[in-house]
């Protein structure tokens, strides 16, 4: 890890921005900066998984990264390929507009090198299926805070089956009201107890 990666890992916001300016002045390409930041984000993810960092550290690291991306946006010739570890479709199910849990999972997954197709909140079954078909993602992540979402999660799984995608896609559910009983009811493959468990599951799928 270089200085920039370390500064991001340590959440030293001011130093991150200084180093970005310094590197740009020295002729660094946008893609180099992104690589350093990615390494820092992976380190943040590891600290979170080990329990040294909590959710606020995760959120703050994402905020710093957002600022860096804003700074180098104009320098980027093309969007980074995002080949990385693989694609994951993620969203909060229909009827539920809560996004904190989903965003935490997405941040952590991005930090681990996955390409996230984030469908947002209040996402219907057909939209999930469409995104899976279009992206070819092998993992579908559904989030919810409200417990009336159980039938909706089942509906999405059923729609994936109906679209003939079930054997190509692993389905993971997460959020406060989710547990093994809900997983069984919905027909998903895995109920993540927290965001870290979810990332581990995705790593195994693409591993």
């Amino acid at each position: 890890m270089n200085d920039l990666s370390l500064a991001l890992k340590d959440l030293d916001e001011k130093r991150v921005y200084e180093l970005v300016e310094k590197e740009l002045a020295a002729g660094a390409r946008a893609i180099d900066i992104i690589e350093s930041c990615n390494a820092g984000m992976v380190a943040v993810g590891e600290l979170f998984a080990s329990g040294a960092y909590f959710i606020s550290e995760l959120i703050f690291s994402a905020e710093i990264l957002k600022e860096v991306m804003k700074r180098i946006e104009t320098l980027l010739q093309a969007a980074p390929s995002g080949a990385g570890k693989g694609k994951i479709v993620i969203g909060t199910v229909k009827g539920d507009i809560h996004d904190i849990g989903k965003n935490i999972a997405a941040t952590l997954l991005r930090g681990s090198g996955f390409e996230i197709i984030d469908l947002g909140v209040d996402v219907g079954a057909e939209k999930f299926v469409e995104a899976l078909e279009k992206s070819g993602a092998k993992v579908l992540g559904m989030s919810a805070l409200l417990n009336f979402a159980y039938p909706e999660m089942k509906k999405v799984v059923d729609a994936v089956i109906a679209a003939g995608l079930r054997d190509k896609v692993r389905i993971i559910i997460g959020g406060a009201p989710v547990n093994e009983q809900v997983r069984e009811f919905s027909g998903a493959d895995y109920a993540a107890a927290d965001a870290v468990a979810g990332v581990e599951f995705c790593k195994n799928v693409y591993g």
Partner: peptide, 11 residues
């Protein structure tokens, strides 16, 4: 809101 308060703890 959530994100802003989380970052306020640092900033």
């Amino acid at each position: 809101g959530f994100t802003a308060t989380m970052t306020d703890m640092f900033r």
